[in-house]
Design a binder for these strands. Sequence first.
DNA 1: CCGTATCCTTGGTGATACTG
DNA 2: CAGTATCACCAAGGATACGG
Lengths: 128, 128
Amino acid sequence: MIRDVYLKMCPCRDLLDMVASKWTALVIGDLEDGPKRFGELKRRLEGISQKMLTQTLRTLERDGLITRTVYPSVPLRVEYELTALGRGVTEPLAALRLWAQQNYESVAEARETFDNAEPMGLAPATTR
Amino acid sequence: MIRDVYLKMCPCRDLLDMVASKWTALVIGDLEDGPKRFGELKRRLEGISQKMLTQTLRTLERDGLITRTVYPSVPLRVEYELTALGRGVTEPLAALRLWAQQNYESVAEARETFDNAEPMGLAPATTR
DNA sequence: CCGTATCCTTGGTGATACTG
DNA sequence: CAGTATCACCAAGGATACGG
């Protein structure tokens, strides 16, 4: 049965929200070229907190996009790896990341233009 | 200059966050087949509040992905349309929506499996 | 090394009402 | 019809400390 992401109550919209959320694209992207350890991911995703990384990984694991393997060595060693299901989203997410990287300058320009055009009715020295 | 979305301070990460945010994929998707009025968008995106739609559209306009045209008829008429820049993200976002619609069932299954496997150390009648 | 628990702050989001 | 303004709230997310 094909669902419609435009329908409010459709569960697939939650799924869209999930893959389109802040860190998902980066985590999945970093797992593209093989399994990674927790620490590796943490280091690569500059600025992510331990909490958010754990949370993102849990969600992805629960949704079946990645697997989590524990090697009971000392010290502990945990690896995350994309599943077949997870590899299915890899491509669109990569395209999104690439687009962001390639079009940043155009967007920055657009912003400047927009912000300069906005203050049309700006009074010379009013408070707000 | 090519930026890296994995770098904390890279402005292109903000851009990634933007296109990957809750409503963006749906709004842009709905504009794929031509200009739409505010009300049309509102009706199509079931569950979006007026505030969030306005906010999403403003951001997209500011970033140069869509244009906003006002026809001073009575009653007022406003149309939103994708720019060339905006049409550049159309494809990956469509792929994402499609993936969500097609793989929802697999994900639902994975969740069930995960949730049933979790309560391993569940005590018979503990609080919490 | 990997993860959980807790506290605490912020802002995203919806509901509602009002204006051009 | 489109949009702004205000309020109120819950949950996302960071910092920190502790545990396996």
